[in-house]
Computed example of a mutant assay.
Amino acid sequence: MSDYKAFNVVLADKVAHVVINRPEKVNAMNADFWREIIDIFRWIDDTDEVRAVVISGAGKHFSSGIDLMMLASVGSQLGPDVGRNAEKLRRKILELQASFNAVDNCRKPVLAAIQGYCLGGAIDLISACDMRYSTVDAQFSIKEIDIGMAADVGTLQRLPRIIGDGMMRELAFTGRTIEGEEARSMGLVNRTYADADALLDGVMGIAREIASKSPVAIRGTKEMIRYMRDHRVDDGLEYIATWNAAMLQSADLRVAMTAHMSKQKPEFAD
């Protein structure tokens, strides 16, 4: 693993812990953040030892969203030509989207552990994760509406599939803040914890449990879930039939069945 400016990354027990590490700036997402997260998730995808991923934020808060200084620097590059400005802005937006697409497209399950602020761009990030967990006092807000823009890095595309269309619209149109228990009640987070320590302990425990399963089975399960977001049921059934025609020949199936019959814990190859 390389040294990162916006993150700290640790691999232990087959779980990669990716920590947004700018606590003095409320973990705001600066240029380093957007660039490095692509490199990190490329490494995660390429490293067979990594079986699951936990994303958290250093300090009191998960993230306050995009760094406003970065937005200002983008604005300072615009000139008098509307067409050229639009082209430049479109390319920048697609570049930022690619950062969270890297999270969404990751072959390994990604769990978000959220405490304190989770605002604006941070909602885009957690929407790209597989599961979300928070403290009871975590604060969530689709904040873009309050700075005069529509969220453009994935919230409006991914969140309706997590909390439903109507609730997403309410949060996006109002920008209101919700806390952990309301987030849990609408399905934004799976579970809440009393404090940050309990949160991280609980989420790391879930990640380690996932990491103990067959990597081949986990990969297939995530791929099928992602595929079904944009396809019909019959398409999905056809895809899993083709996928499992190969994957059911994996040694993992024999290892799992033998362990189950002998009441032993299975050990799978990376």
Rank of each mutant, 00 (worst) to 15 (best):
I66F: 06
I210T: 04
S134A: 12
M131D: 07
I40A: 06
Q264L: 11
R132Y: 01
D270V: 11
T155D: 00
G205H: 01
L237P: 04
R232H: 13
D152I: 06
V18N: 11
F140D: 03
A207K: 03
A198F: 05
R22M: 01
G57I: 02
N105L: 06
D201C: 04
F140L: 06
D39W: 00
V18I: 07
A52K: 09
V9R: 04
T242Q: 15
V103R: 08
G166I: 05
D46C: 12
M247H: 14
Q139T: 11
V136I: 06
I145P: 15
M204Q: 00
E24V: 11
N21K: 10
I142S: 03
N85W: 15
S185T: 04
K108I: 00
D13E: 15
M131R: 15
A217V: 01
S63W: 08
G236N: 08
A58I: 01
L125G: 13
A16G: 13
Q77S: 15
D165T: 04
F7G: 13
F33E: 03
I123W: 02
R22A: 06
G65A: 09
E95M: 08
R35P: 05
A112R: 10
A102M: 13
Y227T: 14
P215T: 12
G187V: 00
L171I: 08
T135H: 09
L199M: 06
T192V: 13
G120N: 15
G121V: 03
A72L: 10
I210A: 07
K108R: 12
A251D: 13
Y117W: 04
D3A: 05
I225N: 11
I163K: 11
D39C: 02
L119Q: 11
V189A: 04
V26A: 12
D46H: 15
N101F: 06
E49K: 07
M167G: 02
D234T: 14
M149I: 15
F173K: 02
T221E: 00
A98K: 05
D45S: 15
P266A: 12
V19L: 12
I93E: 07
V54L: 07
A211S: 11
R161I: 00
S73Y: 02
M257V: 15
C118P: 05
A98C: 07
N30P: 15
P160K: 03
N190E: 05
K92Y: 10
A211V: 01
G166V: 04
A172R: 00
E87L: 14
L159E: 05
I93V: 13
D230M: 10
L96A: 03
R22S: 08
I20T: 02
M247I: 14
F173Y: 04
Q115P: 08
L248T: 10
I147H: 06
I240N: 03
D252T: 10
